[in-house]
Simulated scan of single mutants.
Amino acid sequence: MRLTRRIVAALVLGTLALVPTAPPARAGEPVVVFAAASLKNALDAASAAWTKETGKTARISYAGSNALAKQIEAGAPADLFISADQAWMDYVEQAGLLEPDSRFDLLRNALVLIAAGPQNPGSDPRIALAPDLGTTLSRVLGGGKLAMATIDAVPAGKYGKAALEKLGAWDAVKGQVAQAENVRAALLLVARGEAPLGIVYATDAAADPSVHVEATFPSDSHPPIVYPAALLKDSHNPDAAALLTYLRGPGARGAFERQGFTVIGAQSAGR
């Protein structure tokens, strides 16, 4: 009888050993953030402020929102995701990879047409968003390229194409578009003089003194530029939720606003 009990106990213990357990909490380790490339300057500053205030740290990977969403889907370890549009956050949410009720809209941005070099004081922009915009862009471009993020995947590229279509200029310039992997790469093409013009976010233009804004696209010429943020379901870092809360609070507001973002704030919670 005793032998039988020992066998049963051994079988139970063996079965329990096969039950998967959650990874241990990673207290003290950096919070891993996947964030849209356009956030770099502002989010680096906000993260540094959080570190100064709390002693906690973050490790931030910047890329196009599409690339980051695909990496998350493939199992890349991350705690937070901040997208430059709703569509790629929707993609991650529909895959069941967001922590329920953690998603909210964090920031807004604007879309601009840029050219290389600083703006000459007192000079008028060469390009007006008039009905003949396509003709004007073709003239200014000459044989050069219009730098944009990938138009069918990266949010900035999708916004840019939508704006040009709305303004009747897409057909005139689509053959001259140089597509970059993300908006910061498109900015770099203009900053280096490799493309006469580019379409980026207003915050990107503000971050690089080697370019200037030729025109700002009307907000109704493209879908609203909104940056949603969320905690990822597989995160086991106890500091991740605290960082997410900090980013929507007063401590991070200045870092975002100094770069030209509009902070949406807590009223967007509960989405």
Rank of each mutant, 00 (worst) to 15 (best):
A84I: 04
A110Q: 08
R26D: 15
A69L: 05
L187S: 14
P77T: 15
L106S: 10
Q176G: 08
T57R: 00
Q94C: 09
D44E: 07
A191K: 14
R59E: 09
G117N: 06
D208L: 13
A207F: 06
D220G: 07
I199T: 13
V8G: 05
L11I: 14
A269V: 11
V33S: 00
V263F: 02
A37P: 05
D208H: 13
T136V: 09
K145A: 13
L187T: 11
L164Y: 06
A27K: 11
T51Q: 01
L43M: 09
F34G: 05
I114K: 00
S38Y: 13
I114L: 02
T245W: 01
A191G: 14
A22V: 11
E99Y: 13
K56R: 15
Y227L: 07
A9Q: 15
M89L: 09
I127T: 15
V200F: 08
L11K: 00
E194C: 12
V226P: 03
L164K: 06
A17F: 14
A205V: 07
A215P: 09
G175F: 08
A95F: 10
R126W: 12
R6P: 03
D124I: 14
G142P: 06
A202C: 03
G142W: 04
A116N: 09
W88P: 11
T135M: 10
Y246N: 01
A35W: 02
I225V: 12
D234V: 03
R126C: 12
R2D: 09
T150Q: 08
E194Q: 12
A215D: 07
A95K: 11
I72L: 07
M1F: 08
V226L: 04
R248D: 13
